[in-house]
């Protein structure tokens, strides 16, 4: 237990000490504010979207489809291929931690990063509402919280896929490029064949919307949740299988 925590804290600190991640965090604060400000400024001229109570939810669509996936690629690149490239993976492996603990610590750190990013983005978007003078009421805030939690589940499934993918790469830039192409392809594929959407976690990035509706049946939510959970578990396990056999 002691070394579990040490590994997890270590990976978190390493993510934090890497400037990239901190810069990403700063952008996550700045971008929603800039968007809200420009919506607010352009709104009377263009009649563009107003910063309304649902601003955090409208923005969540952008966060989950672009921003957080980008974070996942970057963090996964740092956690796996980058460590292989700089030969620093052994530093974690030579500690009194099993491979499972090392792998678990890395994925847990990534999951924590995603959660932290969602919390950060949620708070900033809610703060934008405050400044726009359209403060969300209790019911709206509850819906927003629910949607952000649901998004975490879908982002986790996406992260599992890319953690698995990362095991095949020895350079972080190669992995980043491949991930972006793969993700874009996964986003376009449903336009060519409907069947793909049902099996691709990339098409579940906006599933939080299901949690906002009163008409969506519990069965639907359960099916979608099970899909995402099993997808996370499957790719997490496959990634572990690759990781445990890795020779450094």
């Amino acid at each position: 237990m002691h070394s579990w925590k040490a590994g997890y804290m270590g990976e978190l600190l390493l993510l934090w000490y890497r400037r990239k991640i901190a810069v990403f965090g700063i952008f996550s604060v700045v971008v929603p504010i800039l968007l809200a400000a420009s919506f607010h400024a352009l709104q009377p001229i263009l009649g563009f979207m107003a910063v309304s109570q649902s601003f955090p939810l409208t923005m969540l669509g952008i966060y989950t489809s672009v921003w957080i996936p980008l974070f996942i690629f970057m963090a996964a690149a740092d956690l796996f291929p980058q460590e292989v490239a700089s030969r620093t993976l052994k530093l974690a492996l030579l500690r009194p931690n099993s491979r499972f603990q090392v792998y678990g610590a890395k994925t847990a750190a990534l999951a924590t990063g995603i959660a932290a990013l969602l919390v950060l983005l949620g708070i900033v978007s809610l703060a934008c509402n405050l400044f726009a003078g359209t403060l969300a009421g209790f019911a709206e805030t509850a819906a927003i919280v629910k949607a952000y939690i649901a998004s975490f589940v879908s982002m986790l499934a996406l992260a599992a896929v890319f953690v698995f993918t990362a095991q095949f790469f020895k350079s972080s830039s190669g992995f980043m490029a491949f991930s972006i192409v793969l993700y874009a392809a996964a986003k376009i594929a449903p336009f060519l064949s409907s069947a793909v959407a049902a099996f691709s976690p990339a098409s579940y990035t906006d599933w939080y919307k299901l949690w906002l509706s009163q008409t969506v049946s519990a069965g639907k939510l359960t099916t979608a949740f099970l899909f995402l959970a099993s997808c996370s578990l499957l790719f997490f396990s496959l990634g572990y299988y690759k990781f445990v056999r890795k020779e450094v």
């Binding site: 409907s194 069947a195 959407a197 049902a198 099996f199 099916t223 979608a224 099970l226 899909f227 959970a229 099993s230 997808c231 578990l233 499957l234 396990s237 496959l238 572990y240 299988y241």
Partner: peptide
């Protein structure tokens, strides 16, 4: 454990995927 995790999760994933489709 690993084998059954992979087995069960892929079965569930395919089943839920099919039911979605």
């Amino acid at each position: 454990v690993l084998g059954s995790a992979i087995g069960i999760s892929s079965v569930v994933m395919v089943a839920t995927g099919i039911s979605a489709m």
